[in-house]
Design a protein around this nucleic acid. Sequence first.
DNA 1: AAGTGGTCTAGACCACGGC
DNA 2: CCGTGGTCTAGACCACTTT
Lengths: 246, 246
Amino acid sequence: MSRLQKRETLRQRLLTIIQHQGEGSKLPPEREMSERFGVARETLRRCLEELAQEGRLIRRQGSGTFVAPQTQPWIKPFALRSFTEDMRSRGLVPSSRVISVAEVQAAAKQAQKFKVVPGSALIEIRRLRLADGDPMALETAYLVRERLPGFDAQRLAHESLYEILEREYRLKIHSASQQIEATVLTNEEARWLDVAPFSPALVVERQVIATTGEAVEYGKSLYRADRYSFELDVMRAPDARGDGGA
Amino acid sequence: MSRLQKRETLRQRLLTIIQHQGEGSKLPPEREMSERFGVARETLRRCLEELAQEGRLIRRQGSGTFVAPQTQPWIKPFALRSFTEDMRSRGLVPSSRVISVAEVQAAAKQAQKFKVVPGSALIEIRRLRLADGDPMALETAYLVRERLPGFDAQRLAHESLYEILEREYRLKIHSASQQIEATVLTNEEARWLDVAPFSPALVVERQVIATTGEAVEYGKSLYRADRYSFELDVMRAPDARGDGGA
DNA sequence: AAGTGGTCTAGACCACGGC
DNA sequence: CCGTGGTCTAGACCACTTT
């Protein structure tokens, strides 16, 4: 009913004001706005608090309510990117070198992840991934053979796996679970990545899920610690299980 | 000291009730509780809403307010957590050992991050963070002195920084930018973490933003690679910049 | 001191769920 | 129907910031 409508319409009017006024500009006092909008101050305040929580407004006691600068505090939600997309977004030119392509049988653990019967054929692809021509990551990926008829792994030297999957196999990628660890490189890994043995590296294990719910890819990447870092913005979400045991 | 916030004491009383009653049990009606606690119904409601938001209570219009079952669905949208909250969510018992507390002057880079003038007083806190009694991370945190009058860093040995900031300083944490890297530990770092020198570690640099837009904390943590990994689920980016406008 | 947001109050009415 | 939580109100007073 128009009861719930009240805060909703109020929110829209406030958003209009926010967009209309410039960043950093001051809003009228609460008491003035509440009167102008024909609404109780508490009702207005609920809206203002909500907008502040979303990062659109900044409220300062004793000072006023201001339109938040849209520049920094705005969150760029962390998105799933392929290596190719990741490097491009960093302004680097990605390329790949296929180290090996093999057909392997799914071990129990892998079969479980892909939801196939153990022993099913998997494509194992090892690639050295370069940025601006220099080694950046060493990657091992597993795909389910039967889901990708006629797949030519050699194309991965110059094309993005996700793009091929999405464009040619109509597999729409939904999400991924990633696990990020640190490690030191073995001699062989270090050679590929052109760094000293025992150099640090980021390990990213990734399981990619299609919109169908199927596991599309399982991969493990070793990133050179001196060239790569993960950046991620996260919102505060109070699902914290902390009773101040004091 | 100023009069304690009613909501704070009220929250504690409600938490006691929640812990005392079993999961799924029903709380008394709002009107009854507000009278019993000598507080207005709206005040009580704010607390109840907060606890519901945190997942401790379930509120059903027309039916009642219930203690939430602690067995939660295992979907974990990645959220900003303090070390304390992080460890608890992993089923470990967090503790801390304060290594040093110092007052330092903000260097140019730090001053810029905190948006204060260079040379402003910062609190530097180094802590060894333990899980189930074993070293897990080595953390250095910086806070702006003038924004936290009367702050006692020693309390951090047993309390969560974020909880203190949110409860007592009314600093509502909005989000954080994190950068994750890999490194190998120096001799001193390795000693604190009780691992061999040159062991791998995850480096997490974190800048925490309040709803006011201010930088609240800047911290750098070294996590033992053999005990800690970052897990995050990410959606495939549809690349939509959705302004709530409509 | 004036002005602003922050908290709290007592009470009204609305919307939903169950009896 | 009654009891529950959900929304809204008008006003009081508090705490902080600025003048």
